[in-house]
Lab assay of single mutants.
Amino acid sequence: ELELEEVDLYRMNSQDKLGLTVCYRTDDEDDIGIYISEIDPNSIAAKDGRIREGDRIIQINGIEVQNREEAVALLTSEENKNFSLLIARP
């Protein structure tokens, strides 16, 4: 049973970094989820404190993420200042 949490992050300008590194968990081929492998200690996500390494990203801004490229594109989008992440953890 996964616990879901919605985390809203806000950046003042497009130079601010959310600070999330995303990856696949390669140990299970059936698991195509996108996971947070690293959080930059000086980033918006780290200061917010709710997202943890190992969390799975389900949605970004209401869009279900299917692959790492999509997640990276959404997280690094210059147009977005508000990010709503739906994350899951066991």
Rank of each mutant, 00 (worst) to 15 (best):
E1H: 04
E1I: 12
E1Q: 03
L2N: 04
E3G: 05
L4C: 05
L4T: 15
L4I: 05
E5W: 04
E5V: 12
E6W: 01
E6I: 04
E6V: 06
V7H: 02
L9S: 00
L9T: 01
Y10C: 12
M12E: 06
M12V: 12
M12P: 10
N13E: 13
N13G: 11
S14M: 14
S14F: 05
Q15N: 10
Q15D: 12
Q15R: 07
Q15W: 07
Q15L: 09
K17L: 11
K17F: 09
K17V: 14
L18T: 03
G19L: 01
G19T: 00
L20Q: 00
L20G: 00
L20H: 00
T21L: 06
V22I: 12
V22K: 01
C23V: 10
C23M: 12
Y24C: 15
Y24G: 10
R25W: 04
R25P: 15
R25N: 13
T26A: 06
D27Y: 06
D27M: 15
D28Y: 09
E29I: 14
E29M: 09
E29S: 12
E29P: 14
D30L: 08
D31I: 05
D31G: 12
D31K: 11
I32T: 05
I32S: 05
G33R: 03
G33F: 15
I34M: 12
I34P: 07
I34L: 09
I34Y: 13
I34R: 01
I36W: 00
I36A: 04
I36D: 00
S37F: 05
S37C: 12
S37Y: 06
E38L: 12
E38D: 08
E38S: 08
I39N: 00
D40R: 11
D40W: 11
P41F: 08
P41T: 13
P41G: 08
N42S: 10
N42H: 07
N42Y: 09
N42D: 15
S43H: 07
S43G: 04
S43E: 08
I44M: 14
I44D: 03
A45M: 02
A46P: 01
K47A: 13
D48V: 03
G49T: 11
R50Y: 02
R50P: 00
I51C: 14
R52M: 10
E53P: 09
G54T: 05
G54H: 06
G54A: 06
G54Y: 05
D55G: 01
D55P: 00
D55R: 01
R56G: 08
I57R: 00
I58V: 13
I58P: 00
I58S: 10
Q59E: 15
Q59F: 03
Q59D: 09
Q59N: 14
Q59R: 11
Q59P: 00
I60C: 09
I60R: 01
I60L: 09
I60E: 00
N61D: 14
N61M: 03
G62K: 09
G62F: 02
G62R: 08
I63S: 10
E64T: 04
E64W: 01
E64K: 08
V65T: 07
V65M: 08
Q66R: 10
Q66G: 15
Q66Y: 07
Q66T: 11
Q66K: 14
N67S: 10
N67P: 03
R68C: 15
R68Y: 15
R68F: 13
R68W: 13
E69H: 15
E69R: 07
E69Q: 11
E69A: 06
E70H: 09
E70A: 08
E70N: 04
A71H: 04
A73Q: 05
L74E: 11
L74K: 04
L74P: 02
L75D: 01
T76S: 07
S77P: 07
S77T: 11
S77R: 11
E78T: 11
E79H: 08
E79L: 08
E79D: 13
N80Y: 05
N80K: 06
N80W: 15
K81N: 06
K81L: 06
N82Y: 14
N82Q: 06
N82F: 10
F83P: 06
S84R: 10
S84I: 09
L85H: 00
L85T: 02
L86A: 11
I87W: 00
I87R: 06
R89W: 01
R89C: 03
R89E: 01
R89V: 01
R89P: 13
